[in-house]
């Protein structure tokens, strides 16, 4: 994905964006599992930031849905094993397991949206550079860049192998279970061989394990303001029960 062009937050330093995203993730993910009411408020960040980055929130939400199967897989055992009654709704008892299941789904979607927003606004390369400049070991930042770059190459390899199989399957499109082993094995071997060649190409150009970054990053007052606006908001959402506070305010009024 390319960095968001000329958006309100497109000029924010990737380090500021990364810092805000990390604080957001830590604050949101550290909320107790049963406190779904607290988690909901964290949706404000992607909902407000997406339009500022000239991204429709609806699109961001749709893009984040690709992790839904994984989230369902992670959370689906909670309703089965945690049958402690939490509350009753229209005469139906809701278990704690269902609440934690919903909580996992919401957290996962919001975390994915925050990460997608970060990559969309700053660009993946810049995000890796920001990681490196914020103290992340060069090897990890480089690894992330490589994974991003070679994911498409790996998919191409897999697609080529799939086409080769199809070309000789004479209309039988089913992929037999016995073929999966050799297919994945071949893909692994090809990947190892390719990574060996890439490593040689990198070494031939003086790579010594550390990412040499471009110095085109300048921290400005706007970056400080961006951090000072969002980070206290996340801490407040984490430590103040906004839902309870609003209920109290309504009751008082």
């Amino acid at each position: 994905m390319k960095p968001a062009e000329r958006s309100h937050i497109g000029d924010i330093d990737p380090r500021a964006l990364l810092l805000v995203t990390v604080v957001y993730l830590v604050a949101m993910l550290s909320v107790p599992l049963q406190r779904t009411d607290m988690i909901i408020w964290f949706a404000a960040y992607p909902i407000i930031s997406a339009p500022l980055a000239h991204i429709a929130y609806e699109r961001l939400f749709r893009n984040s849905l690709f992790v839904l199967p994984l989230l369902v897989f992670i959370g689906i055992f909670n309703p089965i094993y945690d049958r402690t009654p939490a509350f009753a709704l229209f005469g139906i008892t809701i278990n704690s397991g269902w609440i934690s299941f919903i909580s996992i789904i919401i957290r996962g979607l919001l975390a994915t949206q925050a990460l997608l927003l970060l990559i969309r606004v700053s660009g993946f390369n810049e995000m890796c550079e920001a990681l490196h400049r914020l103290g992340c070991p060069g090897a990890i930042a480089t690894q992330l860049l490589m994974v991003y770059r070679y994911l498409s190459v790996l998919l191409e390899e897999a697609l080529t192998m799939q086409h080769a199989r199809q070309a000789r399957s004479y209309g039988k499109n089913s992929f037999k279970a016995s073929l999966w082993g050799p297919f994945v094995g071949q893909l692994l071997l090809r990947t190892i061989e390719r990574s060996r060649r890439i490593n040689m190409a990198m070494k031939a150009r003086g790579f010594n394990g550390t990412l040499s970054t471009s110095p085109n990053m300048h921290w400005t007052t706007a970056d400080t303001v961006y951090c000072l606006v969002w980070i206290p908001v996340f801490f407040s959402l984490r430590f103040i029960d906004v839902s309870a506070l609003l209920l109290t305010l309504f009751a008082y009024c």
Binding site: G123, R197, R205
Partner: peptide
Amino acid sequence: NADDQLFMPTVETDVAFGPRNM
């Protein structure tokens, strides 16, 4: 294989990779 040689996110950063390492 050029795919083995080009590993950075853009052509420009890839061309700059060697000089920066120097």
